[in-house]
Design a protein around this nucleic acid. Structure first.
Lengths: 153, 153
DNA sequence: GTGAATTAGTCAGGGCACTGATTATTTCTC
DNA sequence: GAGAAATAATCAGTGCCCTGACTAATTCAC
């Protein structure tokens, strides 16, 4: 008694959506490269020579998770990591040739997969859907760092 | 070059939405009990004496993950597990008194949290949002088990 | 220029999520 | 009723995700 209907809870639905997405990704995009791995490769494609922290910022992953994902991509020789000669704390990331090839190939497949995932919605609904998710996640992310208060001078 | 805009990828957005949700959950609902743990407790509240497999079905979790989550709830003495005397393969799950109390308390907080999470949307948009996510996840889940073909007689 | 913050990355530890293999029990079939 | 198929749960292994503690390098402040 007093149980709740979880299908009205956006958090629960978000988890199910992600499960559904992972399923489709494995079937239609790649069984080797996961969606977060693709996101990292994509960030490095957009800005070669990025450091891990910034990659995390671009793809919404914390430092530890980025390190793991990067580690896996390096093991598969899709990514290279070299110390920044300007700043010895940083590692600069770049795709290998193979990495660039894989990224190109998966980009096409991911686009097809997105179409399939959104197929149950009309095209106006699709736009709306993406917009609504974005607004909700962005608002919640801001609750995290409540707009820096400037230090008194 | 040739990088993609991930903010148009529903899978990527789903992951970010879930991160945002987890953040808010920790801040507003509980730091001890996670959202999947709450989902399991909720399923058992609705149908006391459920077995693990069915709980997994109710909350969209596979057998292994249910076993882990159940294990954690038992360790905290929020849940009890007894062999089904009718069917020695099953374990029947029930909340402890403490478990029922915790579930009641978190239910209220979760409702408040949902309001905050959806606050950036108007109330029509909120309904739409929930509906769109549900439709997309349900459709994708059906791709998994493509409607049993009845065996020829 | 030196000591104190800050910053990039690693590591340990906990939780979620899945697959494939295995074990125990039940049910089906003959 | 005995063997075969199905079912509930566990286990090992992989990957994602986070926090808090730590290390190494840089930058700031005086």
């Amino acid at each position: 008694m007093a149980a709740v209907d979880l299908t009205t809870h956006p958090g629960h639905l978000a988890r199910r959506l992600q499960q559904a997405h992972t399923l489709l990704w494995n079937a239609m995009v790649s069984e080797e490269i996961t969606s977060p791995q693709f996101a990292v490769m994509n960030a490095v494609t957009a800005e070669p020579g990025l450091d891990q922290r910034t990659v995390g910022e671009r793809v919404s992953l914390d430092r530890s998770t980025v390190a793991e994902v990067v580690g896996r991509l390096i093991r598969r020789e899709l990514l290279d990591k070299v110390r920044d000669p300007q700043d010895g704390r940083r590692y600069l990331l770049r795709l290998t040739e193979e990495g660039a090839r894989v990224h190109r190939r998966l980009t096409l497949r991911a686009a097809r997969m997105n179409q399939v995932l959104l197929a149950p919605l009309s095209s106006e609904e699709q736009g709306l859907f993406v917009d609504l998710i974005r607004r909700v996640s962005e608002a919640a992310e801001e609750l995290r760092q409540p707009v820096q208060v400037p230090p008194r001078p």
